[in-house]
């Protein structure tokens, strides 16, 4: 049942017209689910995991009681939205230009 749900959520995201890539990794950067090709996937999973680590420490060091909850990286070409959690990361790459 739960797997179906996961699949549904994943599909809904990937079917979104603005979304160019969806990627779910665990805290070590291992891919759990992705719709990107392997090379790009590896790039994103490695680099974004590091970015999130940095952001998390940054937030924590500014205020110990605080925590990172959502990270949006707007670039010229894309917007990368990252939802960090205890164990997993959801990374969604969207193209807001299409809006």
């Amino acid at each position: 049942m739960s797997e179906v749900e996961v699949e549904e959520h994943f599909k809904r995201l990937t079917n979104n017209k603005y979304v160019e890539g969806v990627l779910i990794v665990n805290e070590d950067g291992q891919t759990i689910k992705s719709n990107l090709d392997p090379t790009l996937n590896k790039k994103y999973s490695d680099l974004i995991t590091k970015l999130v680590d940095h952001a998390t420490t940054c937030v924590k060091e500014m205020d110990e009681t605080n925590d990172l909850s959502f990270l949006r990286v707007r670039t010229k070409k894309h917007e990368i939205m990252i939802v960090p959690d205890k164990e997993y990361l959801l990374i969604v790459i969207q193209n807001p230009e299409k809006k």
Partner: peptide
């Protein structure tokens, strides 16, 4: 992992946030 409860919960929660953000029709840039 995929069938674990925590993962399902995480997906449920995180996709919701992203979908809301995606539905923000205004491009702030």
């Amino acid at each position: 992992i995929i069938s674990s409860n925590e993962f399902v919960e995480f997906i449920d929660h995180s996709t919701k946030i992203v979908e809301r953000a995606l539905n923000e029709n205004y491009d702030y840039m």
